[in-house]
Design a protein around this nucleic acid. Sequence first.
DNA 1: GTGCGTGGTGACGAATTTGTGACAGACGGT
DNA 2: ACCGTCTGTCACAAATTCGTCACCACGCAC
Lengths: 229, 229
Amino acid sequence: MHTVLVVDDETDILELVVFNLERQQFKVLTADNGISAVQIAKEKIPDLIVLDLMLPGMDGFSVYRELRADPRTNSIPVLMLTAKGEVNDRIAGLELGADDYVTKPFSPRELLLRVRALLKRTRKVTADASLKSGDFLLERNTLKLFLAGRPVDLTATEFKLLRLLVEASGEVQERDALLREVWGYSDTMLTRTLDTHVKRLREKLGKHAECIQTVRGVGYRFVSSPTPA
Amino acid sequence: MHTVLVVDDETDILELVVFNLERQQFKVLTADNGISAVQIAKEKIPDLIVLDLMLPGMDGFSVYRELRADPRTNSIPVLMLTAKGEVNDRIAGLELGADDYVTKPFSPRELLLRVRALLKRTRKVTADASLKSGDFLLERNTLKLFLAGRPVDLTATEFKLLRLLVEASGEVQERDALLREVWGYSDTMLTRTLDTHVKRLREKLGKHAECIQTVRGVGYRFVSSPTPA
DNA sequence: GTGCGTGGTGACGAATTTGTGACAGACGGT
DNA sequence: ACCGTCTGTCACAAATTCGTCACCACGCAC
């Protein structure tokens, strides 16, 4: 199940819909009027935003720029939608960084297909904007950690470290890379510094300590749901 | 730098080009005639395939299906390209699973932009092409081996060894070569070290142990589907 | 069957790599 | 200056990995 924010002028409302990838159907979840689309996006963090460029009294492009400016929304794929079919406009949209661009008139089916394609493509990247497993919640965007609802204080270094690990969730991050990215280029760091910080992170992660797996001889890896062996 | 395979009829050739994401330029690498596009794709494993549907004497859709049918190419994003501008055709393309669809006439710049967008989106996914064959899935980044879905932890050396074998799937790798590439140049390794590691690998491979065949007097060979012969 | 050469196996100790607790300096706020 | 926190470092413990060896098993030629 995916959440898609549709910023449209057809109905003159902003719709937060759930898109069922299998059944290929939209379903309106909430409909708020008078609230900025950008506002909603930042709160709801949808998986995809369908942005109509022909908004009344509003420049679609500037909405887009706002979305890209905020860390919470800047990685959400955007499908632009417009009546303008001119090549120039299509280029402008794509050049800005839109992930796709559909021009009216289009069949609902085509839009659906493009949405599906986009969701499929970006699922892994955006699906877990915030990682959750049980009482463990790591907000990727704000980079705050919650355990059982309670926020956990992370120091700056721990933050950087955890962030690198989480952003490459599932992949092994080499010790060298971590040292370089967290502490800057330093060959001075020949010691157990990294290990110590990993230890401290694990302490704060409590029973979720296993989420940070050590890969001997290589580095560390973050996994949301630790698989035994 | 990305490799893009362009299957086009404009020039009547198949072009393997390198796409410079920063400078936004294509550059023809090789141009072979008379060779199946699918063939090239399977050999070169490009990062992206631009597929013209209006190939002479050839159905673009069937090329597409062939690409999707092979494990080596089935994860490569495909951008379809055609003169057919009808909605139905666009739907057909997207429905098949194409990652994008551009209709002629289009400005070269727009194509470039779409290519860039696609590469950007799929970079991370395809960059770490994981080796797959049968039940095997060897993820380079993760340093993990999946057997029928279940993760198997490999040590650094085991991984190097298996990787070499799998990458040359089907071919015999000589003992010397393996020793050299895994352990560096070493004539010191006159012992049973390689054998031991092969043994350990086979243990971890479980019932797939037979996939690593020993070729007496020469070396080892990896085969995805061991033939009893 | 016997003998030779090559590969397989289990065990073991050394080497390498990580985890841990403690500690002292640095930094910032009061 | 005082105090608490954050950080890097160290010495040492614990955990794995790795190479080696002795020994066994198998295939092949005779």
